[in-house]
Amino acid sequence: MTTTALKEWPLWEIFVRSKQGLEHKHCGSLHAADASQALHMARDVYTRRQEGVSIWVVPSAAITASNPDEKGEFFDPAADKIYRHPTFYEIPDEVGHM
């Protein structure tokens, strides 16, 4: 992160764990001056009705995303490997559930 003076507070991505045992899920973003302020604001913006038991805040600038224009090539290697799915294999009925 840069220390140059920003006109706007930086953007943070917010992840909320809705209850113990579940994963943190992305729920939106907000502007905050620093991480602890981002946490407090995320609590007020995204958990006003007990929607969460834990919050992660991540600087949006720290996220590297795959390029949607290359979605085809990027995900293509998995498209023709149907043998990775259990339904590819035929098992005699008498074996029952497997």
């Binding site: 992160m1 220390t3 003076a5 920003l6 507070w9 905050a32 001056a33 620093d34 302020q37």
Partner: peptide, 11 residues
């Protein structure tokens, strides 16, 4: 103030 504080903490 929030921004100045954040900058100071970072420095």
């Amino acid at each position: 103030a929030a921004q100045a504080y954040a900058r100071k903490q970072q420095e």
